[in-house]
Design a protein around this nucleic acid. Structure first.
Lengths: 135, 135
DNA sequence: CAGTATCCCGAACGATACTG
DNA sequence: CAGTATCGTTCGGGATACTG
């Protein structure tokens, strides 16, 4: 825990230095954060974390994504080098998606974040209710 | 490192169990991830991580945010219990924003994520260039 | 099976002007 | 100083239909 706090403190310092010196670092981070906040990207990364999957297999496991967004999100992840696409020359065609090493490395920090969300969601929810019912 | 991988593995397992049993956990997480991906929320959290700040002070440190979005994002963070707003009854009025304990706890996992982004951005950038220039 | 193509809506966001 | 109010536009993304 002490370790976490030190890490956080170091990070905050680096952030503010970067912010002071111009905002290149901030832009870099925004770029990644956009991806995290993207409605489907991280959900697909997490789904692929359990192993390679085919197109319709992914579609079944994430039922509320539209075909369009599944295609588009996979393309983006592929473009970023987080996901690899492998085509098998069979009839009918089979296509498999899997995380690259880079994609797998994202699982670690993403996991921390999602665990945080999981642990603190009830407090956030309570805060929202308190805020909305204040007079 | 081994520790991180174990954490990630545990997480992935919990995720898939949750996904299998319905998607309540996923919805919870989406809710938080929406906030992370929000264009300004995390930038403000990081900016407030260095200490309490007043409205126009924040506006100066994050110059490219519009007044409207600064207000709105601060309200949302306040509603979620991540930021506290304190009004000083002076003339002219002064208002100070600071992270709550809950808000501070977010710095830790958020820091991991941003450090990841920072460390891997060049690889992502290279992947994008490779993808865009493939023939 | 694994996609493309097209249409369309609503929310997010920026710009601008005004206020206690 | 610390906001509110309003207008206008962009664009993410859903629905639907079609294809190699």
């Amino acid at each position: 825990m002490q370790n976490d706090l030190e890490t956080a403190a170091t990070f905050v310092q680096r952030w503010s230095e970067a912010a002071a010196g111009g905002n290149t670092a901030r832009c870099t981070v925004r770029n990644i954060l956009d991806k995290i906040g993207d409605k489907w990207s991280m959900l697909l990364v997490m789904t692929l974390a359990t192993g390679a999957k085919r197109f319709n297999e992914l579609h079944r496991q994430v039922p509320d994504i539209s075909q369009k967004m599944l295609t588009q999100t996979l393309r983006d992840l592929q473009r970023d080098g987080l996901v690899a696409r492998q085509v098998f020359d069979t009839q009918p065609p089979a296509v498999e998606y899997r995380l690259t090493g880079l994609g797998q490395s994202l699982i670690v920090p993403l996991g921390f974040l999602i665990n945080w969300a999981d642990e603190h969601f009830s407090r956030i929810d309570a805060a929202r209710i308190a805020y909305d019912t204040r007079d």
